[in-house]
Design a protein around this nucleic acid. Structure first.
Lengths: 210, 210
DNA sequence: TTGTATATGTAACCATTGTTACTGATGGAT
DNA sequence: ATCCATCAGTAACAATGGTTACATATACAA
């Protein structure tokens, strides 16, 4: 565990903090597709992502959903942090996009370290900052862009976080994450294929030149 | 200043902290309509809102804009906090919705107090939590609701923060804040008027029964 | 009063997105 | 091979929102 911590967080956390994390943290391995947090869950700890990618989604009351952003190595879930403190229910859903490894920190430590370690404070604040900005980017996309642009951005981002040139999803799955309909997504994907930007296959999409 | 601090924050801040705030904070009165932060500004301090309402807007590169949320008494701007720390440019625009009074805190104190006062830590975290949730509400609205619902929500919220039953804006101004067009807003407002929910006048809208 | 700038009302039209319905393609499982 | 579930392609249509264009209303200044 200590090695993985150093790899992902070594530059920002001092040794004493890393030592403490090792003492109280629990290491977890999560398979791709695992549902980590559901809307309404109470959250019991704060995750430090050591490898892999977690996707964070918003659900509304009618079962509609929308992809908010991805968490990557070195990230933590700010939503979680605030939920912990207030003992509030989660407003979001989190699912492992790839196999992932993470270290869970008990809530009380999180509070304690904020007073004790400057590097932890910086980490927490920076994390909030990143999450706020990613939410703003998502909001921009939904508010200011048309579906074709959103789809292209989605494909690019998904390929980036998975470090692949193909997207392994059905059109229906993509439609859910963009809060659109399967027919619309198929239509737009077909248009992208005709422009030579992607190649469509059953269950996956090959990116040629986006 | 100390009285206004106690009125707005007395319950959550201990006396020692209030004393420190009084020492280093500068009191400011802002007239309605005053542009407090522009996109790209570097931010020099953290505001504690003592009275009045501040509206926070997102601008995109094409001059499009979108209302994100209102800050009310007892709130602070989380965006500002993170910007301060990283010396990062602002991603948002802030304008006084009403006359407002606030206390500006120098950045370095903010860091110091986070280590020193538990109540300050709670305040900062709670503030982040509130802002994240308000962003989510805005995102829900944009992603899941149609313009007519968004308009109704907008009118209600605007009336609430201003503590009035009328909205003093032109249709064009409303259109900007919802990122729509004047014609669309006029159309939907007319529909609401025909339903007996509002009354339209030049430069203001009377809320009857929303 | 008259002129002018601004605000609002409305119609006609277009683009985008969503819906319904159906077809064909694909890839296992038996 | 045959069956079956799932996935993708497509057409026709509806709904929403955005655009253009013009008419009318209002407030205020000269």
């Amino acid at each position: 565990m200590i090695q993985e911590l150093r790899d992902s967080y070594g530059n920002q956390f001092e040794d004493a903090l890393i030592y403490e994390i090792v003492q109280v943290g629990t290491f977890k391995e999560i398979p791709a597709g695992f549902k980590m947090i559901e809307v309404g869950d109470y959250i019991k700890g704060m995750p430090l992502l050591v490898s892999g990618v977690i996707k964070v989604l918003r659900d509304d009351k009618d079962g509609d959903e929308l992809l908010l952003y991805y968490l990557e190595t070195g990230d933590t879930c700010s939503m979680t942090m605030t939920c912990c403190i207030g003992e509030v229910k989660s407003e979001i859903r989190a699912i492992a996009e790839t196999d992932a490894k993470l270290i869970m920190i008990p809530i009380r430590k999180m509070e304690e370290w904020t007073a004790k370690y400057k590097s932890w404070r910086n980490f927490v604040f920076e994390s909030y900052h990143n999450r706020l900005n990613e939410l703003l980017v998502t909001l921009d996309s939904v508010a200011f862009n048309k579906m074709d642009e959103r789809l292209v951005d989605y494909l690019k981002e998904k390929a980036r976080v998975n470090n692949e040139t193909s997207i392994h999803n059905t059109h229906q799955e993509i439609a859910y994450e963009l809060h659109s309909s399967r027919v619309v997504i198929s239509r737009l994907l077909k248009k992208l294929e005709k422009l030579g930007k992607i190649e469509l296959h059953r269950n996956y999409i090959e990116i040629i030149n986006l």
